[in-house]
Design a protein around this nucleic acid. Sequence first.
RNA 1: GUGGGAGUAGCUCAGCUGGCAGAGCACCGGGUUGUGGCCCCGGAGGUCGCGGGUUCAAGUCCCGUCUCUCACCCCA
Length: 421
Amino acid sequence: MVIRAPKGVADILPPESERWRHAQQTAIDLCRAYDYREIILPVIEYTELFNRGIGQETDIVQKEMFTFEDKGGRSLTLRPEATAGVVRAFIQNHMEKGGLPIKLYYRGPMFRRERPQAGRYRQFQQLGVELIGSALPLADAEVIILCARFFCALGITTELVINSVGDDKCRPGYIEAIRNYLEDNSAELCEDCRRRTRENPLRVLDCKVPGCKEALLGAPDIQAYLCDECRDHFRQVEETLEAAEVYPKRDSRLVRGIDYYTRTVFEFATPALGAQNSLSAGGRYDTLIEELGGKPTPATGFSIGMERVMLADPRLPEQRDFGIYVMAIGDEARKPAFMLAQSLRDKGFSADLDLMDRSPKAQMREADRMGFQLAAIIGKDEMAGGYVALRDMKSGAQENIQVAELEGEIRRRHSAGGLGI
RNA sequence: GUGGGAGUAGCUCAGCUGGCAGAGCACCGGGUUGUGGCCCCGGAGGUCGCGGGUUCAAGUCCCGUCUCUCACCCCA
């Protein structure tokens, strides 16, 4: 048997990889516009970071982490998400000393040991931002707007769902209320939800079992339990979003599967995807930094699942660079052709030539197939005359250009044709 | 962890009640002593996922196993 990639991981080949690059570049350009800077983090962390950061009761920690021991017997884990690592780096490097807020973006692979399916992989790429230090509703709004603009830039239609899960002051009261309600109605709940009633009652709100949905119709609404500060914060977030023409749908049953969220939580979803329809999600985490040993510091952020973005719109462009294919006619032209391609590359053009000893006809077919815009043809006559035949692959028009004038001619055609370099 | 579907050429798939392994696309070459797309001709490419069983004979039937895939759980 040939060796296969491990379960749930994927190779991204050209031209698919070019679509990825486009989407990633779009996100990076937006991050820079909003003044976020890249943080490059390790993919392994000590396991305890995730146990404490994500929450011992979450599915991620309980059953989805790739965990192993190093030689010293210390437990390491492949990161299942990035926020805990960003916060660890923020604390460890005393980043608050440089002045708040700190605005960071990251990208890279995350790892969760789940059964793969459409839009869900064991290694998957996330791109996310963290805005650390600001407690203002404007901060929540900023990251949500940034995320909304990203989907907008790619032409992907999404639905934004938003909620507030309260803070340390008001959430305990709500959890108490929902737990009481669930206990009173436990006869109608599925087995999982009875367990969740004890361990993490908020998660029952997410249950899709029809009986549970019905049983929840009369459940207490978190909106009614928010303290004045949380209610005001939430209202201001919504107002700011609307001012930026981002229109969230409020859903008081939206709870995320990670324990660190406080106040604002949100999710961008798309109907185009199947079961895993969440393209990105995030929220505020005002207590996480303190819980991981830092000074109390408010923060907010989100993460985008790039595989799902790529699935959501397969029409994202896969453009090849402006390129010149150098054709050699006859063996004695091979080396001059090679040197011409080399000199074009040194001048910053994208150039290629035949490395398979093909016939002139086959070289031309290759230039066409690979989508080159120009072909520079060298044969006996051209070598003798010090020129090349420059062919426009689209029109087929061909004219002789002195080698000394080639660079200028290519640039002229490039700017006239509006082709991307 | 649980359930459904599927494994035949690089890709998408056909292959009937068991009887010589196929098509389209893609790839390579030729039709043009130095020129692409359309068209025509030719070529290469397969352990029919793997292992066992039934049979004169298995891609086809039976058993096992692996992988992929979709869904549940959960999440990006």
